[in-house]
Design a protein around this nucleic acid. Structure first.
Lengths: 141, 141
DNA sequence: AATAAGAATGATAACGATTCTCAAAGATAA
DNA sequence: TTATCTTTGAGAATCGTTATCATTCTTATT
């Protein structure tokens, strides 16, 4: 039996793997991110991280998010209104539907759209470095 | 022969048509927007408007841009990095390619992509209210 | 385990883009 | 022309985020 939680070990390993120095704050924040199945902003992540590691400051949350982003561990999204929101990098690329009434975020993926994007760019003499596709939607009921 | 410029008359008419009160500042800003073939931000629009009407303040530029947006006269875009950028509402809807090296903005339009978006949303029980599609690209040479 | 060197941290100031406040000036309709 | 209501300029305030800096912590090396 170890004194360290399973999550701590996992996050430590993940940080080392990404070549990022391991600190209590980073373990806490990465744990929070791994647990989140929504797309929280920095302030929300700060709230959650404080429950695990009360000393984390908002400045460190922002700094760590940038570090994790550079390390390819998280993605930053700048949806309309409010600040940036984050999610851990998982399997395949996806885009987002945003429910304009509830603020809920749904992920989707379409090879067809990706192909069309490449095609359009190519025809204009460009290649796509990255893109942003957000559908602001309302539930049809 | 009129003492008023042709542009002034046109902008005045456009404002009245949109049900927006006519002021010197608004005429100037709308004239600048109509002339712009790029996608300037508020500060840039302020610079240009001051050449026509030196008294315009940045606050009024922001206020007027919101009014014009509500009136459907201009569109506001929040591209990555920096502040919002604006363009007059012209003919058909379009999306944007952004040259990541030069900052240049190219417009494009694809019915196919629009259709696919609607389809994807529909399948998930949503209808698209509006969307954001930006391709961050590099010239292939 | 002790250490040295560099990196990360918390607190808070600073920042850029945008909005708000409020008294003064202006536009519109009667 | 007047009365009413809107818009304006100047600057303060706000929001999300980044920078500063002295202190604390990680890490690699003993």
């Amino acid at each position: 039996m170890s004194g360290e939680s399973d999550t701590t070990e996992k996050m430590t390993a993940a940080l080392r793997k990404a070549g990022i120095r391991v600190t209590r704050q980073r373990i806490a924040l990465l744990g929070v991110l791994a647990d989140a199945d929504d797309h929280p902003d920095a302030v929300e992540l700060h709230e959650r991280a404080k429950l695990i590691e009360p000393s984390v400051s908002l400045a460190t949350v922002y700094r760590t998010l940038s570090v994790l982003e550079e390390g390819g561990v998280v993605h930053r999204h700048a949806f309309q209104g409010g600040g940036a929101r984050f999610e851990t990098t998982h399997e395949e690329h996806h885009d987002h539907i945003l429910d304009v009434d509830t603020g809920e975020v749904i992920e989707f993926q379409s090879d067809k759209i990706e192909q069309l994007q490449d095609e359009i760019a190519r025809d204009l003499g460009y290649e796509v470095v990255h893109h942003r596709l957000e559908l602001y939607c309302r539930k049809t009921r």
